[in-house]
Design a protein around this nucleic acid. Structure first.
Lengths: 119, 119
DNA sequence: ACCATATTTCTAGTATTGTCGAAATATGGA
DNA sequence: TCCATATTTCGACAATACTAGAAATATGGT
């Protein structure tokens, strides 16, 4: 692999995570993610999300599509309903990225300050 | 505290984290954060960041101001130089928020999948 | 007081994004 | 086939954001 190709790979990687952060970077969409995580792993159908967040259907649909296109949620049809679920794999990857940058690479933040998993 | 005031407090909280995600939601700014974390805790002066990322000075200044206004970086003058550093406290808070949503609240993602701190 | 360097602020153009009403599509049932 | 419901797509507008050249400001040295 050439040097520029390595650089572009790294660039794509950062760009991808930037897009994921951006997708969670508005209040309505971050609320949607919270809601789907609270309903995990069942998820919720669009109408339920709409009742909960009181967002007009076309606006909500737009936000859900954005989250889906960035891979943060997944969708599955159930008859006339569409059920959205949080994509925990993608969230894990994003969390790992942020964790690695802050905690692993240079100890800017101590792991223990994020989580205690040793009881 | 009234019910609506509780709701608005929660709303402000989510909005704040959304703004922080949004601030890291472009490739140039996520790169700046990576760079400052890699140089932590010394940080870097603007010129050094500019040499590294090859962003025009006015554009870079704009991005740095955005990161600063969302509390993700801090700035300190050193003579004619301005030294920017990652705000690890803010990053820790953001990481904790995401961690709590994904791992604590409903085990959508297992803590062990993010970090192994128990050797 | 002047100069050189570092960085920001100003100004502006283009592009992207968030919002939402209205219309279109999808599905299942009568 | 027609209807009711769920959801998306279309179209449009306003707002915001990214970019960057040029000018302005800040600082320290001579």
């Amino acid at each position: 692999m050439t040097r520029s190709s390595v650089a572009s790979k790294s660039s794509e990687r950062v760009a991808k995570y930037a897009d994921m952060f951006s997708a969670m970077g508005t209040e309505p969409r971050l609320r949607i993610m919270q809601l789907l995580l609270s309903a995990h792993p069942e998820g919720m159908v669009v109408g339920e999300i709409q009742d909960e967040l009181e967002i007009p259907n076309s606006t909500l649909s737009h936000h859900l599509d954005k989250l889906r296109s960035e891979g943060l949620v997944e969708v599955q049809r159930e008859g006339t309903f569409l059920r959205y679920t949080a994509n925990t794999g993608a969230l894990q990857e994003l969390l790992q990225f942020l964790y690695a940058e802050c905690c692993t690479r240079n100890k800017a933040v101590k792991p223990q300050d994020i989580v205690q998993i040793c009881k």
